[in-house]
Design a protein around this nucleic acid. Structure first.
Lengths: 233, 233
DNA sequence: GAGGCTGAAACTGTATACGAAAGACAATGC
DNA sequence: GCATTGTCTTTCGTATACAGTTTCAGCCTC
């Protein structure tokens, strides 16, 4: 509620934000596959709104790297390549340890408890092989660590970053999940014990492992899915 | 030119992008000071366009952290605080060394030459005390390093990041400039000699020094300028 | 004189309308 | 048969219109 608005009208969520969320989810889930052309009229029709909210949402997903906009030609869903994926993990490998360190320095008892609760949920989801849920919990855990770190720049970068992670990870969750959650436990332990050094190295180890797995998935997964739908340029 | 469009029509720059650039510059230069309310009508009048391009530009500067948007209340220029500045430098301290490392690994002879040319220009600007120019060259150098690194994620984060750096640095350029450029020389040397380790530590040293200086400026500079213009919330 | 109420003004949120540019495709000329 | 040109459709780029909220000044009441 700390972020909530006090007035009833202030709770209003503009259409552009609803469209933004729906659009991001659709792209990450693959409903709009890489290379897919996104015309404003079609999106407006899909979401049942006018073009204006769609345009404003498009500017944001453009800035976040989910679509490429060509002047007077419209938007196209971006195609993750092995090089952009490598770039993303290189960045993540630097930011994630920072988040873990600052989280270890600042975490309260309640913060740590919330992380443990998420681990427990993830264990259940892993038992039932609920992969979409595992994927969401994965992002949620990392976002929570960043929230605990209290670093606002990390927070603002995190939304786009973890949606991209989910994007390239989607196809490989099944094999990766068990290892991933073992690493998460180590990370949470380090944060819980307030050990910045240990938290940092646990985070780095986790990202490194995730990176290797992601590259495998990208090679085997997207090349098939993206196919010839890439924009001509 | 590698980014330029080949057709004459493809060279068209949408109003939203022109507004976006003008708006960022106006905020960073302090023409719209922190706390200033930005109504869409007024911006539209200032730039001589309708509200729509303004709205789309606002969504981007919002995502970049230059303004805070309150639902049904409009946009307000963000106020850099010492905590957000610290956060920014913590992030920068992780990303800049990465950029330097990758640049050292990939720089061609021409790349290094372009960096040296910038150092030379900066030396002249320092001699003539042309502070706005120094400030712009500072950002340009770092952006060039990131470009050389070839990491697209770094590139997309860089625009917003260095505009923020310029923002908080504006008031303290005079004192900081000489030290800054000495550190830059070390950085360029390391990249030029293709030594990733050395480049990384030079970058880290540079950011650390910049961070200390920025905190001083924030304390002495913004508290005066921002004054009571902050939004009531 | 202070505090609450009321109405108007200002502003955002959203939709619609119109003009211009780019691409597709058929018709025409060689 | 192939290249070329002209038209037509699609889609973006921009402006304008309107409805719902918030804000604020002025008035009324106590």
């Amino acid at each position: 509620m700390e972020d909530g608005h006090l007035t009833i009208g202030g709770r209003h969520v503009p259409l552009r934000d609803q469209v933004l969320q729906a659009l991001r989810v659709a792209i990450v889930n693959g409903d709009y596959p890489p290379g897919q052309r996104l015309t404003e009229d079609r999106l407006a029709a899909d979401f049942g709104v006018s073009r204006n909210p769609v345009r404003e949402a498009l500017r944001v997903v453009e800035a976040e790297g989910f679509v490429v906009v060509l002047p007077r030609r419209g938007a196209v869903v971006a195609t993750p390549t092995s090089s952009t994926i490598a770039d993303m993990f290189a960045v993540r490998a630097r930011l994630e340890p920072l988040a873990a360190r600052q989280a270890a320095e600042r975490a309260t008892r309640d913060d740590v408890a919330s992380l443990h609760a998420m681990l427990e949920e993830a264990r259940k989801a892993t038992d039932t092989q609920d992969f979409p849920r595992i994927s969401r919990l994965n992002s949620a855990l990392h976002l929570r660590v960043i929230e605990i770190s209290g670093n606002r720049w990390l927070s603002s970068l995190a939304t786009a970053l973890y949606l991209h992670v989910q994007w390239v990870f989607r196809l490989g969750v099944a094999e990766r999940a068990p290892h991933s959650w073992i690493e998460h436990i180590a990370l949470v332990e380090a944060i819980g014990s307030g050990d910045p050094e240990e938290a940092e190295s646990a985070a780095l180890a986790h990202v490194s492992a995730a990176s290797s797995a992601a590259h495998e998935n990208a090679r085997t997964g997207y090349s098939r899915e993206a196919g010839s739908q890439r924009p001509h340029a």
